[in-house]
Amino acid sequence: MRTVLHTKELPEGERFDFWLDHMFRRVVAPMMITCDDPASFRGSIESMDLGAVHVSAVEASPCGAHRTPRMIRRSDPELLQLAFNLRGETAIAQDRRRALSRPSNMVLYHSSRPHQIRTGFGKGDTYGVMMVFPARLLPLPAHKVERLTATVLSGREGIGALISGFLTRLVNGTDQYGTADRSRLGAVLTDLLTALLAHRLDADAALRPTTRQRVLLLRVHTFIQRHLTDPHLSPATIAAAHAVSVRTLHRLFQTQDATVAEWIRDRRLEHCRRDLCDPALGDRPIHAIATRWGFSSPAHFTRAFSAAYGVTPQDYRRRHRLDHVLARHAWSPSRRPDETAPPAGR
């Protein structure tokens, strides 16, 4: 993500005024901001555009905000906003409801209707993720979605856990995404939120087939990641866990670049590769690493690893260990900054 604003770079007396100006004039749905202690205010925003979806990680001192009917009449982009709490508490009021959101909770609200937000309650900074997108992207009746504004949505279980995990990886990751990748990520997020809201509204029948398919695929991917260490993980066990047939599961993976078995194998190989690079696991036998990640046969693991990376696991570990030693030697604290390594042969 890229940093859009960080108040620590400003003089203390100017931080809250700058934050207020930014939030009122430059955010997608302007709001009036108040703060109990402007002199000690701290805030930062990092953001990422995912096609029509905008995701921001926001950290701020305790403050309040409200969007009035006058503001709505002046400018209304008709946006839905999902606030996902990672630290602290946030209260959001809209449509005669008030939701108190704690870590791992999510709350939905709409820019077209007045709302109030209060963060921190004097107990320290809050940190969370904001997902903002056009309301028209949700293929659900607007009057039904209104039933869920300012209500707490759990990010710990079911589809809510998929959304919270997805958002957390986005804000914590260092991956660089192309324009097409970002648009696909935005589509996945809106599909997940649509599925979550439809589940809460008992409106699953209103979901588009493509939305149901993408949500199911992400659930399957997450299930596989959580069960990679199980040597008995197979298309049959995955299909049973998701109440679908094995044929349906295979058909689901036709949109991927790998079959179900290949997808499992590739994830396991990647975890093994990382462990072989980890100095803390340098004394662990290679077969133990393979077994840990679900490979029951050392010979099969060696063949699969060699085919994927062009080198045996043992040679890969040896090569990485040598690179690590050379890097440590090159930056040894005992060497003076202007000292260079002696030429080879001397």
Rank of each mutant, 00 (worst) to 15 (best):
E339P: 00
V27H: 13
S183P: 00
W331R: 14
R147I: 01
P342M: 08
S112P: 01
P139T: 01
V129Y: 08
H6K: 12
T126I: 12
R208E: 14
L50H: 05
H110D: 15
S183Q: 13
F301I: 04
V215Y: 00
L140E: 03
W19Y: 13
L5F: 15
R251D: 12
A307K: 11
D37V: 12
P343L: 10
C277P: 00
S104E: 12
R98V: 13
L326H: 11
P103T: 03
R335W: 00
A304L: 04
R15V: 04
F84M: 12
Q176S: 13
A135R: 09
R335G: 05
L207W: 01
R184G: 11
F223Y: 15
G13W: 04
H6A: 14
R169S: 14
P279E: 04
H227F: 11
A239R: 04
R292W: 07
A39M: 09
E78H: 13
I163C: 01
S47P: 06
A57K: 14
H232A: 13
A29D: 05
M32R: 15
L50Y: 05
F16Y: 08
T68S: 07
E270P: 06
N172C: 08
R328Q: 14
S75N: 12
I224M: 10
D204A: 06
V55K: 05
A236P: 02
A198C: 01
K144H: 12
L167W: 03
Y309H: 07
V145E: 02
R219K: 15
T194I: 01
R267L: 12
V129I: 14
H250A: 02
P30W: 05
M32D: 14
R96T: 09
A187S: 14
L281D: 06
G122A: 04
R73G: 12
D175W: 15
R226W: 00
P231L: 02
R208C: 00
F253K: 03
W331Y: 08
T149M: 06
G128N: 01
D21R: 15
A161N: 05
L233T: 06
P38Q: 01
L167M: 07
A205V: 07
M48Y: 09
P235R: 07
R70L: 12
T259C: 06
D283W: 01
D49S: 13
S40M: 09
L167T: 00
R317Q: 06
P209A: 04
T312D: 07
N105R: 02
